[in-house]
Nucleic acid binder design. Structure first.
Lengths: 196, 196
DNA sequence: ATAAAATGCTAACGACTGTTAGCCAATTAT
DNA sequence: ATAATTGGCTAACAGTCGTTAGCATTTTAT
């Protein structure tokens, strides 16, 4: 049975996935070994397999957890009755926040999905394509209604998502740019390019 | 002696690096094996070592080749007498072009630098920090002269570079967006956010 | 033609990979 | 108290990794 861990309010499987996310980001999925991971969890490598089925399963869990979270949020935004600009701002802000406080997970979903085994790889890429398509549709609708500038929606989505995912190279140590300032400045830049 | 290859106007070392760049991008540095690479070059794994010294050396060559190319261009732009907007546009266009026609190399310098061994890793990161700093200085000067909008230069650099590096997820197959259209649309979006 | 250098090959080393088997102790359920 | 389950351990497997040694062949220089 999956019981509650003593210290924290999380199962050991969750601890494993959390530690793994850090390791996968630092070394890359291929270069991170199960023995490495085991050491960080405080256990022998073989013992990991009492909680997970394979190394790939960890990657799958992380990637689809992130994908589902973004997708759920997108659906909420789509169903809302805001203006196009407000919708885009909501999405942009969510992406930035996710990047800031679920950094490891988002990073892996962004950069290590290549190592997903089939059929999960195709599945993941389909979801991603679908997500971007629907973001583009929001922009296109906004253009049709004359709410935003007539920019190529595909390029705009590319720019917005890539810009945010680039926060991974942000130097958290810099005092000059706090998380809040980063978010507001980035929103400003990205939204400004959409306004008429 | 490093002699000229029969077919092409390139040494075998260059062929190895070219094939490796493709492989490193597809599988990641850690997951790409020398035996894999050897097969693509048409040779046994051990024979590679007649032309290179190690797997890491290939990564180093690629990363610093790209870094030097960008740095050289930046110096030319800095020395020029253009307006801030023109300077930024020149830099943006170069980045996009590099991304489009030296895709594999740029991708690796962007994503696989983590696997550089010390002291090359520190060296590379220093160069990158320096590059971004100087891009930020160009923007700051433009703001001081009142040529562009008073945006946070650090964030602007982050957005611009990240947006361009995100072209790696661009679907070349899409007929709807040619390389030229992509470039002009992207420049438009990114430059627009800088204008007053 | 002969020497020298470059480049290929096979075989192998030692280290490391993800994962499984089998056993034992601790915890939980009856 | 006893049985059942969970989760830890050690040992090991079969495979792959980057790399080196030693030898053979081809190409270049003299």
């Amino acid at each position: 049975m999956a019981k509650i861990q003593g210290k924290r309010n999380s199962t050991k499987k969750e601890v494993i996935i959390e530690k793994a996310s850090r390791l996968f980001r630092e070394k890359g999925f291929g270069a991170a070994s199960m023995r490495d991971l085991a050491e960080h969890v405080g256990v022998e490598a073989a013992s990991l397999y009492n909680h997970i089925q394979s190394k790939s399963e960890i990657l799958q869990t992380i990637c689809f957890k992130v994908a589902n979270e973004f997708m759920t949020n997108l659906e909420a935004v789509e169903a809302s009755n805001q203006s196009t600009l407000k919708k885009m701002e909501a999405i942009i802000r969510l992406h930035i926040r996710m990047m800031l406080d679920q950094y490891e997970f988002v990073y892996i979903a962004d950069h290590e999905w290549r190592h997903l085994p089939e059929p999960y790889l195709s599945n993941f890429l389909n979801q991603r394509r679908n997500y971007r398509k629907r973001l583009g549709d929001i922009l296109e609708e906004g253009i049709g209604k004359g709410e935003i500038k007539a920019i190529d929606p595909y390029v705009a989505v590319l720019v917005i998502l890539s810009a945010i995912s680039g926060i991974d190279s942000w130097q958290r140590s810099r005092k000059s740019t706090s998380a809040e300032a980063l978010e507001s400045n980035m929103v400003k830049y990205l939204i400004e390019g959409l306004k008429k």
